[in-house]
Structure formats: structure tokens, C-alpha cells
Design a protein around this nucleic acid. Structure first.
Lengths: 360, 360
DNA sequence: GTGAAAGCGCTAACAT
DNA sequence: ATGTTAGCGCTTTCAC
């Protein structure tokens, strides 16, 4: 049913090689021939068969993106950015979600389902440093996140420690001294939680503020509900505090809600800052200060590096690269005084590029 | 480099057919042979080449999902659900985003990039009823959304009119009479905006409330910022109102924020209800009442129908199906009186299934 | 500048 | 129960 190179060749009265040359924009084709072939292509509505091309050339034009979960805003926005970047390179994106399960993550790395991709952008959450060996795969792979460092692959990550330190410092600069942390992970050494906690501790130390363990709350999950629960516990414990650092925005948002339920004023009584700068944070009441970790830059770098690796082919690969992107402290109402509340609602953030009319 | 059927066959001392039989779990293989082949597979780390399989069999095990944008919570949560459903059928999902552009949507339908998928789940936002002919493609296609009806393809959609009517009725039942609408689309006849507005009008008519055009505000985009802007205009216009129906949650959330900026109490002065029931709505202050439009059911039905169509093969296709999923009114603080505020924060919603530990 | 032919790795007929 | 063989549609030498 679908037209093939042969059909086009027959109709145009040339060989399939010539048709192939036209399809692939090979320069040395006589204009007259090209025109005739193009006419035949249009008439038959010819579409190249990607499987056949891929089988022969070893390239599918598809890259894989492996994420914990799409319904978390951070990852949804990351995926959106990756798809946009991939499109610039003429690539489409196959998304696999792992549910942050270590086993699932490891399985995906050697899954034949992923074999039709030219390379993978891999964002694990369950795997840890001890799994570094699993990353030694025989296809292009770019690692994201902060679960594994120093692996045999290119790695794009954010400046967790510095950014968390900057977040904490912004609270200290506003005169806060009793800064609670929401979302620490017990005993973790690498991983977002550990790194961000380290940044928090650095900031306190630099300001000469003693670390009060009672102010550090733990939760494995980083959803709104966990932030809310931690906050409620902290309030009920009676431990005094004048600021909250949510290790991600969802946690901070959950905490924000509970603070208000409890009748505490934000930021007058308690200042709140998050991490991730998801779109939602600009629209809550009060709007949430946060760290923009450079999400779009991460997506751009990851795709760029992957494309370069794919282009390298099987040749002796160059050294794995470790890329750190820039971050920014985004101050909003939850840390600024109420006097500076204008403009009260921000417009569309520049980060959410090419968002055309989109209902539902 | 990568092992092929031939390599495995040679090592196991059998023919490639036998290896193929083992790989594809063909039942009539002697246990001893199967074991020997499996050993060879393991030893060589054999992975079937999907492109070759796909070229030969015409199936890739990949389905496409075409969406306006992933950074909108509704679509992110929908994509998440589709991926989960697809996985149950052993399929992976290729996501393409269109930015809600009509041209992009039409182009995707005939894009060779999508030709390696076995079928498509297609959620347009730019195309309209006049584009119905573009849906007559020669591969399995399931249409989502409410831009086009009665097309030549299976269609899974929500009960927009009934659900919007129920939302409005819940406000009326709470004693509200001056119900503003945020997000209407000028002159639209089909599409989410038009259908939901129709439901609103039905509810008013049924309750004997005259429609006041001043209460219906228009905005093309359905982001938080648009809801905020519309709300601000309405407040400043001086038009009295005691309730707001946001045609999606993002609009309602933007409105919710402005209402509070303006010193209006929700729900005491103004009750607010949205549409979509995105995860975030349970965690705002106050939490947002909404319509759960049956998102997970939509994903499940869409994948199910697509899988069946793919299975049908080229045979005479059965009639296109039109599937309507169930909705539910989710009442939260923004419409309930404050006396019923407990429990104050909901736990993880059952809708967000299989969300394991997920940081960042 | 264009054509002929080989073969990528696999599945599906058909044979045995 | 297992082997043989013929392509799927394309790209890629290598001729001409």
C-alpha cells in the first residue's frame, strides 16, 4: 500500500539510487532529474520507511528520555524542554518512566525496547553511586541528576550545593536565623537531598549560625503532601523557627499551605523558599521564592551532548564531560516583605517557551 | 559488535529459526534446545534489533502521543497515564508536541517521523471541525479532545457539557446567583471552551437565572496568568459576582490568587470552581473545587482502543467508536463553607498511581 | 550524475 | 520440532 523507493523510481523512470539521493538531499543530482523525482514523490505521497532506514543506517532519529514520572512538574517541564531541543535537531523523543524504581531504571538501560533509539537521556532517582557500573553501556548516554557522579558517561547537572547555599543565604540576609529544612533524606550522601542539605549547612556555618537538628525534617517522598505533613509536625512540636527551606517547590508549597492553615503569616512570621522554580510557584498566594536550577539549560546541554556523541559514531570516544549549569535565586513574596508585592502576578515565564494557545 | 540471531544460532548449534522461536516464546521448542539457546543468548548478551523486526513484521511496539504541550499539568498528567497504560500492553510512547498550532498538528499526521509508530493518540487544539478530513489517515488513530466530532476515527472524550453544568449547579446549590465565567472563547462552537460554556448556560437556564453577558470573560490562552488578568478586569469593572467558574484549573487558580489579592474571601465572598482537577488544586489555599473529567479513564480507553485497532490489521475496519468517560465534581474549600475544612490537606490522590519516591 | 547489486537483522512460508 | 529461504525498504559501495 505505502509507496516505496521502487514505486517512485519506476514512476519517475530512474533508479532507486537516484530517488534516494533526492530524498536525502544529496547535492549531485541534475535539476531536471530532481524535479521529475520530486513530482513522482508528491504524486505517490511517498514517505520513507523509518524502520528500513534505521536498519540499514543504524540511525532512527529517535532519542530516549528516561524519567521517574511525568506528573511531577519538574520532570514535565524538563521533558517539554528536551522535546523542544530535540526537535531543533530533527529528533523525536521516546519517553519511558521508571517510577523512580532502581530495578526499573537498571532494566531500562539494557531494554531492547530502547534499542531503537540512537541514544538516551537518563534521569535516575532510585539508582545510587554503587550502580555506577550499570552506566557503562555501548550506546550514547547522557546522565542527568545527582544520584551518580564520576561515571563513565557525560553528565549534566545543577549546582545543588551552591544553589541551596544561596537560597539559605537569602533567608539569612533577610534576618532569619531559625531556618527549618523540609525534605532531608536520612543518611544520604549524594542525591539532591544530601547536596542541598550540605548547601544549607555551609550557609549556616559561614554566617556563624549553629545547626539545630530539630529544624531539619525528613521525608522520603518530595510531594506537596509530604511538605504539608512535615510542616504540621514541626509546628506542633513547638520548635521555634522563622524561615523554611523546602528542598523542592512541591515540599515548600505543601509547607506554605500548612503555615497559613496554622495562622502564621508568610513572610512576616515565616519566610519560605523552595527549589526548582516550577511554573506554579509564581502563582500561589503568596508567590513562592525559589531557585531556578537552570532546567532549560540542562535540557539544551543534554540534547546537544547526546547529538554530538551520536555523531561521533563508534570511534574512540572522548572523555566523559561533566557539565554544570547556572542557577538563579528567584525572590518572590514568600521571602520578600509585603511592601514589595508589586507587580503582583508575573507574566508567562520566559522559561515556558513556545506555549501557544493551549486550553484544557 | 552487537550479537545477531546468527551469532546465537552458531554458538548454540541450531538454526536462526530456532533462536527466533525461543526469543518469541514460540511454544513448540524442546526444553533442552530452549535451554541451550537461552544460554547462548545470555552469553552473547543478545538483544533483538527492533528496526529489523519492525521492518519485517510491520510492528514497532511504539505508539505516538501528540499533545499541545507537556508543561501544562493536564497534559503532563494525561501523558503520564498514557505511558502507564501503554506499558501494560508492552508498548512504549513517542511524544510529539505541537504547541497547539493547527499547522503543526496537521503536519504531524503525515510526518514520516511518526511512521515508525504502530498508531497514534492525537490530542489537537488548533485544528477544528473543518479539518476533519485530515483525520482520514491509513494507520490506527485515536482522537482525544473536543475540537472535532463525528470524524472517521475512534474518539475518546469527556462529558464537557454535563460536567460544566454540574460544576455550575454545585455553585447554584450553594446559593450563588451571579456566577462569572473565566476563559470563554469568542465565537467558538465546538472546543472545550464552547462546550463548557454551554453547560454553564444550561445550568443557569434550568435554575431560572438570567445570563448576564458581563459575567462571561474571554481569553484565548488558558494559563494561570490569563485567569489572573481576567479576574482583575472583572473586579475592576465593578460588576458584582459571588462565584467564579474557571473553564480549567489553571484559569481558576489564577483567578483565586487575584481574588485574595483584592481582599475578597473565598468562598465566603466568592466561591470558585475549576475544571480538570489537576494535582495542584488539592494543595492551594484555599484548595480548589474542580471537575475530575476522567483523565485516567481517557488514557486507558485510548490505549485500549488503539491496541485493538492495531491488532485488527488491514482488515475491513469496524465503525469508529465514540467513547465518553465519567466525570465527578470534586468539592473542596473554594466552594464549601470554611466550617467543613477538615481534613485540611488531602493525601496523595488515587489518580496519581504508581508514584514512587520522587525527589527533585 | 546515475545505475546495479549487496545486505542490514529479522520474521514468516514452506520444507523436512 | 527444527532448518531453509525469501524478502521487508532502505543505504551504500562500486561501477559506468
Amino acid at each position: 500500500m505505502a509507496a516505496t523507493l521502487h514505486d517512485v523510481a519506476k514512476l519517475a523512470g530512474v533508479s532507486i539510487k537516484t530517488v534516494s539521493n533526492v530524498v536525502n538531499a544529496y547535492p549531485h543530482v541534475r535539476p531536471a532529474t530532481r524535479e521529475r523525482v520530486q513530482a513522482a514523490i508528491d504524486e505517490l505521497g511517498y514517505q520513507p520507511n523509518i524502520s528500513a532506514r534505521s536498519l540499514r543506517s543504524g540511525r532512527s532519529g529517535v532519542i530516549g528520555l528516561v524519567l521517574p514520572e511525568l506528573s511531577l512538574s519538574y520532570f514535565a517541564e524538563l521533558a517539554d524542554a528536551v522535546i523542544a531541543e530535540a526537535e531543533k535537531h530533527g529528533l523525536v523523543v521516546l519517553i519511558e518512566k521508571t517510577g523512580a524504581s532502581r530495578d526499573h531504571e537498571i532494566a531500562v538501560l539494557s531494554s531492547p525496547r530502547m534499542r531503537l533509539t540512537d541514544g538516551l537521556i537518563f534521569s535516575p532517582l532510585g539508582m545510587g553511586q554503587e550502580d555506577v557500573a550499570h552506566l557503562a553501556v555501548d550506546y550514547p548516554l547522557v546522565l542527568l541528576g545527582e544520584r551518580i557522579f564520576g561515571g563513565p558517561v557525560d553528565h549534566v547537572t545543577m549546582r545543588n550545593v551552591e544553589a541551596a547555599r544561596a537560597a539559605t543565604e537569602s533567608l539569612i540576609a533577610a534576618g532569619r536565623r531559625r531556618i527549618a529544612v523540609i525534605g532531608a533524606h536520612e543518611g544520604e550522601v549524594v542525591g539532591s537531598a544530601a547536596l542541598r542539605l550540605a548547601g544549607y549547612e555551609e550557609a549556616l556555618a559561614a554566617a556563624g549560625i549553629a545547626l539545630d537538628p530539630d529544624l531539619v525534617t525528613f521525608t522520603t517522598l518530595w510531594h506537596r503532601a509530604n511538605g504539608a505533613a512535615s510542616m504540621r509536625e514541626l509546628v506542633q512540636s513547638g520548635t521555634p523557627f522563622d524561615a523554611v527551606f523546602g528542598l523542592n517547590d512541591a515540599l515548600a508549597l505543601g509547607a506554605l499551605r500548612v503555615l497559613q492553615e496554622e495562622g502564621l503569616r508568610v513572610p512576616e512570621d515565616v519566610a519560605v523558599i523552595g527549589f526548582d522554580d516550577i511554573e506554579e510557584s509564581a502563582f500561589t498566594v503568596p508567590s513562592l521564592s525559589s531557585i531556578d536550577p537552570g532546567r532549560t539549560q540542562i535540557a539544551a546541554e543534554a540534547v546537544e551532548i547526546l547529538v554530538r556523541r551520536i555523531g561521533e559514531g563508534g570511534g574512540r570516544p572522548s572523555e566523559p564531560r561533566e557539565v554544570l549549569v547556572d542557577f538563579a535565586v528567584v525572590e518572590r513574596e514568600s521571602t520578600r516583605g509585603p511592601e514589595s508585592r508589586a507587580p503582583r502576578v508575573e507574566g508567562a515565564r520566559p522559561g515556558s517557551q513556545d506555549s501557544a494557545a493551549t486550553g484544557v
